[in-house]
Design a protein around this nucleic acid. Structure first.
Lengths: 120, 120
DNA sequence: CGGCATCCCCCGGGATACTG
DNA sequence: CAGTATCCCGGGGGATGCCG
C-alpha cells in the first residue's frame, strides 16, 4: 500500500486532518490512562462543547481509534476506550502536546516581534 | 513555564491547531531538504491554493517556524526556509505523515465496517 | 446521563482575476 | 514570479432545547 500524504486525492490526507484536529489530540491524550465516561471526558477537556465532543468521538470511533461501550443500566453509562490503533497514536499525541507546551513561549515571542514589525 | 494544552485559555492550544493544520505539516515536511521558492512549494503540494499557501506561510513565519527571504531581483525571488524551531518540528511532522500513511488502510476498513453497520 | 436536533452565524477556503 | 483582491459558498461549531 503506497499511501502518500503529498498525493492530492490520497485518503491519508483526511487522516492527517483527523489526527491534527486539536480535539482529537486532546481526547486521545486524556484516554491514555484507561476508559472514561462521556461526562468525565467533558470535565477533563475544558472548553469543549457537547456537540464537538460527541462529533469528535463519533469520528474517532468510526476511524477505529476509539471503542464506545454502552451499558444497559439506569442511569445510562457509556465508556470510551482507545483501541490498539488508538494507542499507537498515543506517543504522537503526547509528542505533539509536549512540543506545543515546550515551544509556546518562543512562538509568542516570535509573534510579538512579527507584529511589532508590521506596525512599524 | 507551565504551559498546558488542557487549560482552556492556554495559547499552547493555538499552537496545537497550527501544527495540526494539514497544510502546515505538509509545508514543513517539504522544506526539510532546504529552502524552496513559492512556486516550488506550490508544485510539491498538489491541491493547495495560492491563498492557503500564502496564508499558511505567513502564519508559519509569524510563529517563527519559517524564514521568508526576498531577493531584490527581476523577476522576483522569494525563498522559504525552516528556522531552528521549525526544524525541531520536522521529526513530528514526519512521524505524523508516516503514521497517517501506515494506518490509512486500517482506518478505511474501520470506516467501511462502521458505515455498513449504520446502514443495517 | 448521554446524547441528538435545530437554528444560526461566522469564516475557512476554493475559484478567479488583477498587480508590482 | 509572487503574490493580493474579491467574490462566494459550504460547513464548522456554539447555543439552546428536547428525548430515552
Amino acid at each position: 500500500m503506497e499511501a502518500d500524504v503529498y498525493a492530492k486525492n490520497c485518503p491519508s490526507r483526511q487522516l492527517l486532518d483527523r489526527i491534527g484536529d486539536a480535539w482529537s489530540v486532546l481526547i486521545v491524550g486524556v484516554l491514555k490512562d484507561g476508559p472514561l465516561r462521556y461526562t468525565e471526558l467533558a470535565q477533563r477537556i475544558p472548553g469543549v462543547s457537547p456537540k464537538m465532543l460527541t462529533q469528535t468521538l463519533r469520528g474517532l470511533e468510526r476511524d477505529g481509534l476509539v471503542t464506545r461501550t454502552v451499558y444497559a443500566v439506569v442511569p445510562p453509562r457509556v465508556d470510551y476506550t482507545l483501541t490498539t490503533m488508538g494507542r499507537s497514536l498515543l506517543g504522537l499525541c503526547e509528542a505533539l502536546k509536549d512540543w506545543a507546551e515546550d515551544n509556546i513561549a518562543d512562538v509568542v515571542e516570535a509573534r510579538d516581534a512579527y507584529d511589532a514589525r508590521s506596525v512599524a
